[in-house]
């Protein structure tokens, strides 16, 4: 266990270095710099002024020096400065991060719960009406564009019924202590989390159903029945846990994409997010922010992988033996 985790963490450093170098190279290759955007937006045309800014932002130095300087500063947790927000990149990212993480975790939780449950029911009732209904539902939610689903939910629950807010993350002026704020955020969270969650749930449903059906064919399930266990006991004690491994894999993949997975829904529900920060930063050639988000993403991927390893380790004793 400890060995596995150590190995994982040893992988993080080269991974992040790779991410930095690769993205640095991509950025250097793309035409234009933020100076072009900035000077255009602010109608600066004085070449001496532009030259001074080039020196100020270190862009007169050779690329390799810029890269080494960047790597060094990342190692000291300094992601640079964003001229656009007039704040450090870390602060800019940290402002957008909680909203994105809350939304993604909520939708993944919904997806896991709904998907695993639906998958189990579909597999236990395979080839019955229940199975068919669930399968059709899964195809529907998987095929329906998430923005369309979001808009439909919004029309029903916000516009028609008026139960939930149309967008944003907090109501202006609501400030009744921590609980009041939490409730307010949850009301805003419900629809975007549901739209995303149902989309992901469709995937979990299909994976869980297939995995359960596969496990049902194993001999040990017959042994369990030969012991006189009831159908529910066989499913819960013998099939379920063995069927979870593919779901854990999917979950790990998904956890790795938390920073980028929700741009569309965040736009529909005007949820403050990293997606739009990223878009804005790319458009304005605000590369320190872009790089910062990418480095953070790779960190999250690495952590997600470590979590998957731990889950595998706990679920399957055969992995422990290796």
């Amino acid at each position: 266990m400890r060995r596995i985790l150590l190995r994982r963490f040893a992988q993080i450093i080269p991974l992040i270095l790779g991410v930095i170098v690769l993205n640095f190279a991509l950025i250097q290759m793309s035409p234009g710099s933020f100076l072009d955007v900035m000077t255009a937006e602010q109608q600066v045309s004085d070449p001496a002024m532009i030259e001074r800014m080039r020196v100020l932002y270190g862009m007169d130095k050779p690329v390799i020096i810029q890269l080494l300087k960047y790597i060094w500063s990342v190692l000291t947790l300094d992601f640079g400065y964003s001229y656009r927000q007039n704040e450090t990149v870390l602060a800019v990212i940290m402002q957008a991060l909680p909203a994105t993480v809350i939304l993604m975790l909520a939708s993944i939780a919904i997806a896991l719960l709904v998907g695993v449950l639906a998958g189990v029911v579909a597999a236990v009732k395979v080839n019955t009406l229940w199975d068919n209904l669930i399968s059709v539902g899964a195809v529907f939610f998987f095929a329906a564009p998430t923005f369309w689903l979001g808009i439909m939910l919004m029309i029903v629950f916000s516009v028609r019924l008026g139960w939930l807010p149309v967008g944003g993350m907090r109501d202006i002026g609501v400030d009744h202590g921590v609980i009041g704020i939490a409730l307010d955020v949850m009301r805003h969270l419900a629809l975007p989390a549901l739209s995303l969650g149902l989309f992901y749930a469709a995937m979990y449903t299909r994976v869980m159903r297939a995995s359960m059906l596969e496990v049902f064919r194993h001999d040990f399930v017959r042994t369990a029945r030969a012991k006189g266990l009831s159908g529910a006991q066989v499913v819960v004690r013998h099939v379920f846990r063995n069927a979870l491994l593919p779901v854990v894999t999917l979950l790990g993949l998904q956890l790795g994409t938390v920073l980028g997975g929700s741009v569309v829904i965040e736009t529909v529900f005007s949820w403050p997010d990293i997606g739009s920060l990223m878009l804005d930063s790319v458009m304005s050639r605000n590369y320190p922010v872009v790089l910062g988000v990418l480095v953070l993403s790779s960190l999250i991927v690495a952590v997600a992988n470590a979590l998957v390893d731990i889950a595998y380790f706990r679920l399957d004793p055969r992995i422990r033996a290796r």
Binding site: F220, R225, A226, R237, H238, N242, L315, R318
Partner: peptide, 23 residues
Amino acid sequence: QRVRGKDLAMIFQDPMSALNPVL
């Protein structure tokens, strides 16, 4: 279910696959 494993029990061919690997 109350008969299986109590009054009438069964042993299968392949012992390596007849047991649940995670218990």
